[in-house]
Simulated assay, not measured.
Amino acid sequence: MHYRLYTPDSSLSSFIKCYWSLEGEELPGTQQRIFPDGCIELVFHYGNLFQKYYPDGTSNFQPRSFIHGQLTRFIEIGGNGRVGMFSVRFQPHGLRPFTNINTHELNDSNIQIADIWGAAGRELENRMLEASDNEQRVQIIEQFLLRQLQPTAVNALVNRGVDMINQVNGAVNIEELSAQLNIGRRHFERQFVAAVGLNPKQYARISRFQYVLSLTEQKRYNTLTDLAYSGGFYDQAHFIKDFREFSGLSPKQYFAEHLPLVKFFSFD
């Protein structure tokens, strides 16, 4: 499977984290678990459609193109033969300036782009699916998004709040953060939810969870206890709770392949 990242133009980098593509072959029925990462995605399938699997054993095919809202828990998806996928990964607060849709209503679900942008969305889908390569797709999507951009919808205060949460990898007190931003907590939370789709505490927890995952990739821990405290968790109970909620697995289950000594620790 070939995964590639593309850098957005500077005129859009405040709203878009990256573009990415995935191409290759995947056996039907193969399932991949996707974790919350604090970002909303605009996805185009120019290969075979992916399936989304549900806890009750059912599944359905994803649309050809759609926006998937913030994840508050893991999902499981899988390819069906030829994989061809192009996606726009928005900054946590990046979607709102391009649409009037309530981002909170998209959480853990998707919406077809024609339901957001109407005829312009249908035309975008056709052009993206018919493009000769992903470099052309980058050009097409950037031209489209620049036409849709509503600069007055940018919330600088929320953007700053997101940056401050990211700087400390989610280890933040929301009351103190609101005070630093010189805004009441409830007012800040309302603005944050409108722009990001999550409340500040939810976003901070996901940011901390993602930081823990990054530590595992860097092998910057010796035991699961070290990992929990390095990730900003003050006790193992919260570490386990967040991990189960976002990944569907206990830390012991997930890190078994990363930490050979895991069998000596009890986290359940």
Rank of each mutant, 00 (worst) to 15 (best):
K52E: 15
T225Q: 09
Q210A: 15
L224G: 14
D242Q: 15
P36I: 05
N134W: 04
L42S: 03
R185T: 13
A171H: 01
Q91S: 14
T7K: 09
Q148A: 12
F86N: 02
H104P: 06
G81C: 05
T103P: 03
I113R: 00
N126R: 08
E245M: 14
G78N: 09
G170W: 03
E26P: 05
S65D: 11
Q51Y: 10
Q218R: 07
T152S: 15
L146D: 06
Q191L: 09
T72I: 08
Y3V: 14
I34V: 13
F246M: 08
E25W: 07
A120I: 06
L261V: 14
N60E: 15
F264K: 08
P63H: 09
K252I: 11
L227W: 01
G231L: 04
G232W: 00
E245R: 14
G184C: 02
R186F: 12
P8L: 04
P8Q: 04
G248D: 03
D226F: 01
S11R: 08
A194V: 13
Q202Y: 03
N199G: 11
L177H: 04
Q150Y: 02
P55R: 01
D133F: 02
G79Q: 11
Y19W: 00
R82L: 12
N100K: 06
K263I: 15
G231K: 02
I183T: 14
L27C: 11
H68D: 12
L227A: 12
N107K: 11
I111K: 00
A194I: 06
N110E: 13
L27E: 14
L177A: 11
R147H: 02
D115T: 10
H238W: 04
T223Q: 07
F74I: 03
V138S: 01
K219M: 07
L49G: 14
F246Y: 09
P55M: 03
Q91H: 08
L12T: 07
D163V: 13
Q150C: 12
K201C: 10
Q143P: 01
L146G: 08
I240K: 10
S13R: 04
A195I: 04
F66N: 04
E135F: 12
V196S: 05
I34K: 04
F74E: 14
R127F: 10
I206P: 07
L124V: 11
P151G: 10
N110T: 10
L22G: 12
G161S: 12
V193I: 15
F192T: 02
R73P: 05
S266M: 09
S230I: 03
N155T: 04
Q202C: 10
E189C: 14
Y229F: 11
E125N: 10
F74N: 11
I16T: 08
D115A: 12
L215A: 11
R33H: 06
C39F: 05
